[in-house]
């Protein structure tokens, strides 16, 4: 993989996007009713994986490295999380809910990976004018 040189403005945009995404995650989590299965994190990770796969559909994301950084590793990177997923899985198992822990782990992987693949698939469909060409 090739890398652009690391630019301070990109790092700052990732920080701003990441802070926004994390606050959104916090608000979803705080607003959701309590449940044994951690639905908020599951929904956040599935929606975020779909959105990251779909992101190149936006012309501005394909054009601007800065917008791509702010929205991809920034907003969606900060919105979704592996640490809470692992933490909730560990907690469920430690509390004796081993079956729920396994189901949560598997459900996040199956739905999250499918969502990312679907987003990418939709983003890669040729635009109408390209299809004609």
């Amino acid at each position: 993989m090739t890398h652009h040189p690391l630019r301070a403005v990109d790092v700052l945009l990732v920080a701003a996007g990441g802070a926004t995404g994390a606050v959104l995650r916090h608000l979803v989590d705080a607003g959701a009713p309590d449940s044994l299965l951690p639905w908020p994190t599951l929904a956040i990770n599935v929606v975020g994986a779909f959105a990251l796969g779909l992101l190149p559909v936006l012309a501005v994301v394909r054009r601007s490295r800065r917008v791509a950084a702010a929205l991809g590793p920034g907003l969606l990177g900060g919105f979704t999380t592996v640490s809470a997923w692992a933490g909730e899985t560990r907690h469920l198992a430690a509390e004796g809910h081993v079956g729920v822990a396994g189901a949560y782990l598997a459900l996040t992987l199956a739905a999250g990976l499918s969502a990312a693949a679907l987003g990418q698939h939709l983003a890669r469909r040729p635009e109408p004018e390209e299809a004609l060409g």
């Binding site: 994390a22 916090h26 989590d29 994986a49 640490s83 990418q120």
Partner: peptide, 15 residues
């Protein structure tokens, strides 16, 4: 919630 949550990323991993 802030540091660990945003340091790790499920969306990047999935893609």
């Amino acid at each position: 919630t802030g540091f660990c949550g945003a340091f790790t990323s499920f969306s990047t991993f999935a893609v």
